[in-house]
């Protein structure tokens, strides 16, 4: 097991390095000079040269990358252009808000998606299977930001049952999962965010069950006269690990991909910070939040990999 952890870690390090190179180059993708935003319009050539030197922009790009990486590793992501606060402070608080949303949405999606997948997988070819497979396709073809708007129309505008936007009456800092006044703000965004994973989880559960159905041990169980219910129980146990892995990956996806849903519900998460940064052309915040979200995604993938190896001895031997 130790060897596997080591091997996966060694594999993850170049990926993480590559991800940081991509995030570093985002600044150079931006039109115009990266210094343009902080320099006054009438700055003399000497001033420009001086500031360029101070910021290290006169050095070769690989050297600049090295300095940038050293600062990032120390937790210094630069300053926000819009708020003049450190990028870390801007992003870290919002990350926890997104995590709250994702930790509710992912188990919700698992509960619904796994049940749907089991129903479909137990009656392959039947009308229930067709219904579930059809809704799974729908789940992944629906623009979730639109579903969010439709849910707001139904539950906030027409029924006036749930709040449309925000994160609790007292803001995000006082948010508590155990108070209804706060929790009701979470319901619509969580359902919206769960939509795509429900479709994906239902599909992978069904596929996983279909694969197991044809395995020898199922035939053996049936041959020894076990009841259909008990056989299904055995199959479900074996279908679970790959689905759990998909669920783990979905958590990473939702952390990084919740920007649209967060924009619809003005949920003060990392995606919302990101979309604000785009509107303000606040490149340091854009770069910092994308780097952190991508690193979370890399870390989630690594953890899922390792957990899978820990649970399933077949992967360990591979």
């Amino acid at each position: 097991m130790f060897a596997i952890i080591l091997r996966r870690l060694i594999y993850a390090i170049p990926i993480a390095l590559g991800v940081s190179v991509v995030c570093f180059s985002l600044v150079y993708l931006a039109p115009g000079d990266p210094l343009q935003t902080i320099l006054p319009a009438d700055a003399s050539a000497d001033t420009i040269a001086f500031i360029k030197h101070e910021y290290g922009f006169d050095r070769p790009i690989p050297v600049q990358f090295f300095f940038w990486l050293t600062r990032v590793l120390q937790g210094d992501f630069g300053m926000s252009i819009a708020t003049r606060r450190p990028v870390v402070d801007e992003v870290l608080g919002s990350l926890s808000n997104t995590a709250v949303l994702a930790t509710i949405a992912v188990p919700l999606a698992f509960l619904i998606g796994y049940s749907l997948g089991v129903i479909a997988g137990c009656f392959p070819g039947g009308w229930l299977d067709k219904l579930v497979t059809g809704s799974a396709v729908m789940g992944v073809s629906l623009p979730n930001y639109w579903v969010g708007i439709v849910l707001v129309i139904i539950f906030s505008v027409e029924m006036m049952a749930l709040p449309a936007t925000g994160m609790g009456p007292n803001g995000s800092t006082a948010f508590s999962l155990f108070r209804w006044a706060d929790l009701q703000y979470l319901i619509l965004p969580a359902i919206t965010l769960a939509l795509v994973p429900v479709g994906i989880l239902a599909r992978s559960t069904r596929a996983s069950l279909a694969e197991i159905r044809n395995q020898d041990f199922v035939t053996t169980l049936r041959a020894k006269g076990l009841g259909e219910g008990a056989i299904v129980r055995h199959m479900l146990k074996n279908a679970m690990p790959p689905v759990l892995a998909v669920m783990g990956l979905q958590f990473g996806y939702l952390m990084g991909g919740s920007i649209l849903v967060e924009t619809v519900f003005t949920w003060p998460g990392s995606g919302f910070v990101l979309s604000k940064a785009i509107i303000n052309r606040d490149i340091p915040v854009l770069q910092g939040s994308i780097l952190m979200l991508a690193m979370i995604f890399v870390a989630t993938n690594l953890v899922v990999d390792l957990l899978q190896a820990a649970i399933d001895p077949r992967i360990r031997r591979a």
Partner: peptide, 19 residues
């Protein structure tokens, strides 16, 4: 390396930086 980004995030990152 590009696989290590969720697709929405990568799309937003590149088009966001490019304006």
């Amino acid at each position: 390396v590009f696989y290590a980004f969720p697709s929405v995030l990568l799309a937003v990152a590149i088009s966001g930086a490019m304006g």
